[in-house]
Design a protein around this nucleic acid. Sequence first.
DNA 1: GCGACAG
DNA 2: ATCTTGTCGC
Length: 220
Amino acid sequence: MPPGDVAEALRVQEELRSRVDLVGPGPTAPTTVAGLDVAYAESGDRLAAAVTVLDAGTLTVVDEAVSVGRPAFGYVPGLFAFRELPALLEALDRLTVRPDLLVCDGHGLAHPRRFGLACHLGLVTGLPAIGVGKTPLVGEWDEPSPERGAWTPLRDAGEVVGRVLRTRDGVKPVFVSVGHRMSLDNAVDRVLALTPSYRLPETTRTADRLCRRALAAALA
DNA sequence: GCGACAG
DNA sequence: ATCTTGTCGC
């Protein structure tokens, strides 16, 4: 059951944050990696969540699932997870394959209270998880060198909460942070392995296409 | 008080 | 997130 208001949501984050595993190095050679994303109807009252599971070696889709529903919470930066979590969890439940790693569209530790969507999703499922954001939520950083693989630390309130990583030469970097049971070094390695051709991980791209398709089909 | 603010 | 035209480049 989603929080009824902001105060309750904050209490839930405060309660769960301590249970996140920030030690586990996570799988160095995962067999399968899942991508999660959500698409919204322009009216804003309907959404479609999708999960795609890719073979980590070939980056081809081996399983996928969707869930159409309503946002479970208003859009409040920092409480974003409560909005998409129910639909994402339902889609995850519908998978046939249990992925070795979750790649979330949003942040993990790079969050005001160190408990972004990737942490929440990882904790609830018990799976290793990382967050890959397209834009920052918190922190300061220096611009990484223009070549793929270059990165700089993302710092907030005196601590390193993630990395600003260049996944393609000369293209805007992404924000990588740990979600659950993953080290930052491994998270960056996994993201680079998932970005042989584009700025965003293949997992995110396939999930993005799937949730858009599912939403269009649901609205038709 | 003011500006910023994942998707 | 979503709404949007053209444009530059491979």
